[in-house]
Nucleic acid binder design. Structure first.
Length: 434
RNA sequence: GGCCCGUUGGUCAAGCGGUUAAGACUCCGCCCUUUCACGGCGGCAACAGGAGUUCGAGUCUCCUACGGGUCACCA
C-alpha cells in the first residue's frame, strides 16, 4: 500500500488558532502513526490577507508543539513549491484542460466548472460516514478568479492531488463543499483522497472558539503560563477519546493511541478550567530541576534555599503565572494586621503568638538548622504543653510571611528563608506583638 | 429559508441490542496535614421529546425540538 500522506494547509494570518492546531495535530498523528508523511503547505491565494511574518508564526508553533513536517516551504520536498502563490501556473493549466474537455467555461474573465444538474454526488467521510447530496444543490463553481488566481477549493484539489495527499483532515465546515471537490476529482479523472472532517471547538453551545474571544491563540496560552505539552494533550482529547482510561499522553503516546474511530462527530465545548488542571498535572510531573528552570523567571529575587521553595511551589502551581502571587513574601513579609494571628483551628491569638514566637526563636537558635531537628524541637514542645504543633508553627508562618496561606507551613518557610532572615523576621514580629 | 450534519450528567466523554449507563474536570463531604495545596476515600449529577422495529433500545427507523455547518470570483 502506498505511503499515507497528510497535510496541514493553513493560511498565514499571523496567529495559530487552537482549533487549527488541533486539526494539524490530528493530521500529524494520523500520518506518523502510519509511518506516513506530514506535509506543510501555505495557502496564500488571497493576497489581500497577506500578513508579514505570518508564516514564521506557523513554523514556530508547529516546532514548539513537536509537529515536525517532512515537506514544506522551508525544508522543500519532491513536490515543491509548497506555497500556493508560487504554484499559480499549474492551476491555470488544469482549468484550461477542463475548458478544453468542455467541462468548464469562461465567464466574465473567470473560469467555472460545469456541474451536473441531475443525479446525486455521494462520498464517504471517515468520521461522518456516507453523505449524499443532490446535484441540484451544487452550482457551477468558479475555478479561476478573474484576477487569474485559483479559488481556494480548486487550488486545494490540484495541490492535494499533485502532492499525492492520501488523507485530507480538515474542519467540518468543509463537509458541505466536499461534493464539489468530488466533482472536480471526477472531472479531472483523479481518484479522490480519503476525507476526514473534524467538528469544531466551541466557546459555548452557540459559538465557535474564535479570534474574537481573545484567547483562542496558542500564543495566548503560552503567555498565560501553560505548558505546550498540556495544551496538546488537552486539545487532543477535545473531540477524540482514547481507548483506555488514561487521559495523559505524550506526543509519542498520542501517536500510538490515535485512531479515527475515537473522533467524535459533535462539536466540543472548550473548558479552560479542565485544561488548567491538565496543565497542573504536567507541572507536578516535571522533574524538579525543570520546574525550577521554568519557575525562576517568575520568582524574582530567590530566597536562600530556592530548591525548598520550588519543591513547595510545584504542587501549588497550575499555571506558571500563578507563581508570582505566592512568592510575594520573599523580599519582605507582606503587611498584615495582628488579627491574622487569630486562628480557631490552631487555637492561636496575638497573645499566644508572642509566646510561640519566643519559643520559635529558641528552637531555631538552639538546634541544627534543619527541618527535622527544628520540627522535633517543636514537637516536643507541643507534646509537653499538650497543644497541636500548629500552635507554634502557624504564628511562625504569619511572622515570616505576613500571609494567611503560604506555599508551605511555618517551618518550610523558615527553611526557605534561611536562619538569619528567619530570626530577623521573628524578632520584628515579636516587636510588633509586644 | 434549502441542503448536509449532530444531540449521553454543568463540561470532555465511554457505550456500538441485554451494563447497577464507565472514567475525567467542576462541586460537596471525609481522611492526611504546621496554612494552602498535593495525595487518598466517598458523594451529587445524564441517554432532548415522541412514535415505531424487537422478547428486549442510549444503541436500529421515522417525526419533532434544539444546536452546528454551508449555500462567495473568502480561505
Amino acid at each position: 500500500m502506498a505511503q499515507i500522506r497528510t497535510r496541514f494547509a493553513p493560511s498565514p494570518t499571523g496567529f495559530m488558532h487552537l482549533g487549527v492546531l488541533r486539526t494539524a495535530l490530528y493530521a500529524w498523528l494520523y500520518a506518523k502513526k502510519h509511518n506516513g508523511a506530514f506535509i506543510l503547505r501555505i495557502e496564500d491565494t488571497d493576497r489581500t490577507r497577506y500578513v508579514e511574518g505570518a508564516v514564521d508564526v506557523i513554523y514556530e508553533t508547529l516546532k514548539i508543539c513537536g509537529l515536525n513536517w517532512d515537506e514544506g516551504p522551508d525544508v522543500g520536498g519532491d513536490f515543491a513549491p509548497y506555497i500556493q502563490s508560487e504554484r499559480r501556473d499549474s492551476y491555470m493549466k488544469y482549468a484550461l484542460e477542463l475548458v478544453e474537455k468542455d467541462m468548464a467555461y469562461h465567464q466574465d474573465g473567470a473560469i467555472r466548472q460545469k456541474t451536473p444538474s441531475v443525479g446525486n454526488t455521494v462520498f464517504r467521510d471517515e468520521i461522518f460516514g456516507e453523505i449524499t447530496v443532490n446535484n441540484t444543490e451544487i452550482e457551477d463553481q468558479v475555478l479561476i478568479k478573474s484576477d487569474g488566481m485559483p479559488t481556494y477549493n480548486f487550488a486545494n484539489v490540484i495541490d492535494d492531488h499533485l502532492m499525492n495527499i492520501t488523507h485530507i483532515i480538515r474542519g467540518s465546515e468543509f463537509l458541505s463543499s466536499t461534493p464539489k471537490y468530488i466533482l472536480l476529482y471526477e472531472a479531472l479523472g483523479w481518484k479522490p483522497p480519503v476525507f476526514i472532517h473534524v467538528s469544531p471547538i466551541m466557546r459555548d453551545e452557540n459559538n465557535k472558539l474564535s479570534k474574537r474571544d481573545g484567547d483562542a491563540y496558542v500564543s495566548d496560552f503560552i503567555e498565560k503560563g501553560y505548558l505546550i505539552e498540556a495544551v496538546i494533550n488537552y486539545i487532543a482529547l477535545l473531540g477524540w477519546s482514547p481507548k483506555g482510561e488514561n487521559e495523559f499522553f505524550t506526543l509519542d503516546e498520542l501517536m500510538n493511541e490515535f485512531s479515527l474511530d475515537g473522533v467524535s462527530k459533535s462539536p466540543a465545548i472548550f473548558d479552560e478550567l479542565k485544561m488548567r488542571t491538565v496543565n497542573a498535572h504536567y507541572i507536578r510531573n516535571l522533574a524538579p530541576e525543570k520546574f525550577k528552570e521554568l519557575a525562576l523567571p517568575f520568582i524574582g529575587n530567590p530566597p536562600e534555599n530556592v530548591d525548598v521553595l520550588c519543591a513547595a511551589l510545584q504542587p501549588r502551581t497550575e499555571l506558571l503565572t500563578d507563581i508570582a502571587s505566592q512568592v510575594d513574601f520573599i523580599e519582605k513579609p507582606c503587611d498584615y494586621e495582628l488579627d491574622l494571628y487569630n486562628n480557631k483551628k490552631m487555637k492561636t491569638s496575638p497573645e499566644t503568638a508572642l509566646v510561640a514566637l519566643g519559643e520559635a526563636l529558641w528552637a531555631i537558635k538552639e538546634h541544627e538548622f534543619s527541618r527535622d531537628d527544628i520540627y522535633n524541637a517543636f514537637k516536643a514542645l507541643a507534646d509537653d504543653s499538650e497543644v497541636k504543633i500548629g500552635f507554634f508553627l502557624y504564628p511562625l508562618q504569619v511572622a515570616l510571611t505576613g500571609k494567611q496561606t503560604a506555599p508551605g507551613g511555618g517551618l518550610d518557610i523558615c527553611i526557605m528563608l534561611g536562619k538569619e532572615e528567619s530570626v530577623k523576621r521573628i524578632r520584628t514580629a515579636i516587636e510588633k506583638l509586644s
